[in-house]
Design a protein around this nucleic acid. Structure first.
Length: 556
DNA sequence: AACACGATCAACCGCTATATT
DNA sequence: CAATATAGCGGTTGATCGTGT
């Protein structure tokens, strides 16, 4: 059978129009008064009928199509057919480079808002964009590449901030914006602080369901997290199902898994972030009674650090969020970063001039070319950085490590072992890389924990696909990516800053933290085939798709 | 040439939001 | 205000095509 696109374009009339089975339309208005509605590919004859109908009656009222035109299709199907294939000014063919770039940028800002994205791409349909993106995701995930170029994320963030200013939230956000401009390392803070600044400013308060790490532990890191951040295609649905949002306090840290969504009404642009925030417990002496409980909504302390207690579909929906790369991580690159540069290389490893020059992708290459190039770049960068790893203590002047208040330790986990599984990191390797036990001597354990946490800005900027421990960046930056698992690994969940040197200690620590019952569960979990951490995300790519903002603010 | 596999695309399904009654 | 209808959105599926073995 000819493909419908060709068929549609060539106006080839199907001769086997009867081959399609006739099925009762349950969802599309049932059998429409006994009339059996047709499913499946559209024929040219049907297209003609629909076109004629729209000419006469205009778009809309799709359920009337069947009545007036005799077309045995449900309204839904008609609308879809018209919107995706028949309406005028539809652009056919492959996406142009510009369109691809725009899609990436839009997705960074909007997430899976295909229809909104389509509005920015004249002649393109949401379905097209969606298909394109899903294909892209598959490719990149397979290649172990992140989804977004960092500059795209940065741009999205900037535009978001700009939009917020425009739409009247300028005052609340001014501080962030300033910081954004003055200190790229504060990018994640922007996201984080936006929430705080927007407290009580509901229309712009990101609806932030909170998830406490403890809750996730209680629920079983693996299964729960798995459902929480499932594969990209399931996220929304699962999040809808997962109405349990989490927050909690441990010691003096409030753990919150947050899904931020900033909407700019004026520009209709959304900036979303999905973050893990660690807020200071406003009352560190009082444990949240629901610390280990599953809460239906976030339980924000009375003093009200942004409440997400109002369920909001948009907030609950988790889409591929904008990444909030710590652009400082790539501060060695030229600024501003070249838009089409192989951004993934940045994520995988800090660029070197050599690598940069070698890996500039052909500007007009298509998606596949770009992918191949990026993969190549990645490979090149890996080699490059591994060469440097032994000499990773060098800190270039002007590196962000200069920041006195922000200790950044960038950690990326790479798919050393399994190129097809960017997150195929074993928990063991994860811990060995992320806990302050590092042969390189550059890891956190050389920094006093209090110092690490000092300044209260522990930011997590998981890139998205591959997580490579980049010793160089780690050294130079001091501290950066701290995901909840990393926090767990480092023992920050317990007693504030106690460091755990190995996984066994971590388990014990968590057992202590979680208490007898939960601890036992956790221990059993962790002694299983996979560790909770592994199940939590590293083994399922969950983290990879979850740009997180993780902060510990004002750690006492 | 046959087969397997991945990519692509069109269409459907389920759900939600909005409008209407 | 509730019930119903409609439109729209996002996720998923299945058919087809192209390519490699």
């Amino acid at each position: 059978m000819s493909r419908m696109t060709k068929e549609s374009e060539d106006r080839v009339v199907f001769e086997d129009q009867t081959e399609f089975s006739l099925i009762d339309e349950d969802d599309c208005g049932g059998s429409a008064g006994g009339v059996v509605l047709k499913k499946g590919p559209w024929t040219s004859a049907e297209d003609a009928i629909l076109i004629e109908y729209v000419k006469k009656h205009g778009e809309g009222n799709w359920n009337a199509v069947q009545k007036h035109s005799g077309l045995f299709r449900c309204g839904k199907s008609c609308r879809l057919r018209w919107a995706n294939h028949l309406r005028p000014n539809l652009k056919k063919g492959a996406f142009t480079q510009e369109e691809e770039q725009l899609i990436i940028e839009l997705h960074a800002k909007m997430g899976n808002k295909w229809a909104r994205m389509a509005a920015h791409l004249p002649g393109r349909t949401d379905n097209e964009i969606k298909n394109y993106w899903n294909t892209r995701i598959k490719r990149r995930q397979r290649a172990g590449l992140p989804l977004y170029p960092p500059e795209v994320s940065f741009k999205a963030l900037q535009e978001s901030q700009h939009g917020q200013s425009i739409s009247g939230i300028a005052n609340a956000d001014k501080g962030h914006h300033d910081r954004l401009q003055s200190n790229s390392y504060e990018i994640t803070d922007v996201m984080f602080d936006s929430r705080k600044a927007n407290q009580g400013f509901l229309p712009y308060v990101p609806e932030l369901p909170d998830i406490s790490a403890s809750t996730m532990l209680m629920k079983g890191l693996g299964s729960h997290y798995g459902s929480f951040i499932p594969s990209p295609t399931h996220r929304q649905k699962r999040l809808r199902e997962s109405t349990s949002l989490f927050s909690g306090y441990s010691g003096s840290i409030k753990y919150e898994f947050s899904f931020d969504q900033f909407q700019d009404d004026a520009s209709d642009k959304i900036d979303q972030s999905f973050g893990l925030s660690f807020l200071p417990d406003p009352d560190s002496t009082t444990k949240n009674p629901e610390f280990f409980g599953v809460t239906e909504v976030s339980h924000t302390p009375p003093n009200g650090n942004f409440s997400a207690s109002k369920p909001n579909s948009e907030a609950v929906k988790l889409e591929l969020p904008s990444l909030q790369y710590d652009l400082g991580s790539w501060s060695t690159s030229s600024s501003p970063p070249p838009l089409l540069e192989s951004v993934d290389a940045f994520i995988q490893s800090p660029p070197s001039g050599t690598v940069d020059s070698e890996c500039l992708p052909p500007r007009n290459s298509g998606l596949l070319d770009a992918l191949l190039h990026e993969a190549k770049t990645l490979s090149s960068v890996k080699n490059h950085s591994s060469d440097k790893s032994s000499n990773s203590s060098s800190v270039t002047p002007g590196d962000k490590a200069d920041s006195s208040t922000l200790h950044i330790c960038e950690t990326e986990w790479d798919d050393y072992g399994d190129p097809l599984s960017p997150l195929g990191h074993s928990a063991t390797s994860f811990f060995s890389e992320c806990t302050p036990v590092s042969a390189s001597g550059s890891s956190l354990d050389e920094q006093p924990p209090t110092e690490t946490l000092h300044g209260c800005n522990v930011k997590s900027e998981p890139a998205d696909q591959a997580w490579t421990l980049n010793t160089e960046k780690e050294i130079s930056a001091g501290l950066d990516i701290i995901r909840p698992d990393a926090l767990l690994a480092s023992g920050w969940l317990e007693q504030g800053c106690a460091y755990v040197k190995d996984q066994a200690n971590m388990t014990d620590t968590l057992v202590t933290l979680l208490g007898e019952d939960l601890g036992t569960d956790y221990k059993q979990m962790s002694s299983g085939i996979s560790t909770p951490i592994q199940e939590w995300g590293l083994g399922s790519c969950a983290w990879n798709n979850m740009p997180a903002v993780c902060q510990i603010s004002e750690f006492p």
